[in-house]
Amino acid sequence: MSVSNLLENWAEFRHTHPVDDVPHDPYKWAMSIDLDACTGCNACSVACYAENNLPVVGKEKFLHGQSMHWMRIERYWDEDGRDFPDQGAQFLPMMCQQCEAAPCETVCPVGATNHTPDGLNSQIYNRCVGSRYCSANCPFKVRYFNWYDYPTTDNVWPAEMSQQLNPDVTVRGKGVMEKCTFCVQRLTSAKNTAKNEGRIVHDGEVQTACQQACPPGAISFGNLVDADSKVFKQWKAQHVEIAEFEQAKDRGEQDNKLRGYRILEELRSYPSVMYLERVRETAV
């Protein structure tokens, strides 16, 4: 915090990494979700409850919009006025998009949410004072606030239920904002193992809980810096660039045979989750 430090490293402090001139290295965690494979079965959502100590809020609080599912499955219907949705519903797993230029980060008054070097939008529970500004500014509304003290006064883990809680994940008390972390406890543990062995994490070595559970395998997760990773290949194949707000697909390049897109990309928050459009057969 010294002035000499400021003067010495001024140039570094003025870099607008990571989206701009300084790329991520050696990790940039990213996801891609194939909506054509996603069946909307909710296995990912339950896996998230199990892995991340999410409280079950109960009917009353769910009614008030106080549910705590970090991963929610959204179901959309066609809006063309037909009597029957004869091309099915459209499911979309929505969780924190780990934006590169996250709107939530700048607004937190205490700096409880930051960008980590490996491209995650971190949320530090014990630093959070509960101003909820991050949630107010999140375009996706994927941040969830602890409206009640679920562990104690609300007692959502009665008796033996609390033994199921994952010791690697802090149990949040009231007044704290929380959200999907890309299972950071798993990432950290994998990175530590890799560091101990003097290498970087291999593709497939670490899985998020939702990815691991997903029965049709719609979710891929990995390191976008690693050219061998599946996620890298998928992003590459779909010509989706992390620091762009308009992709080849939107510009009508590549004969429009691409189906990778990011949600609300035009807001320039540069999400780390790429979705692959759902496909429907035209012949039937």
């Binding site: 008030h64 919009g65 106080q66 969830y144 606030f145 409206w147 003290d149 009231k174």
Partner: peptide
């Protein structure tokens, strides 16, 4: 009790 009693919710 927590902020929930003020009846705020996620959005």
């Amino acid at each position: 009790m927590g902020m929930g009693v003020a009846n705020m919710n996620n959005p």
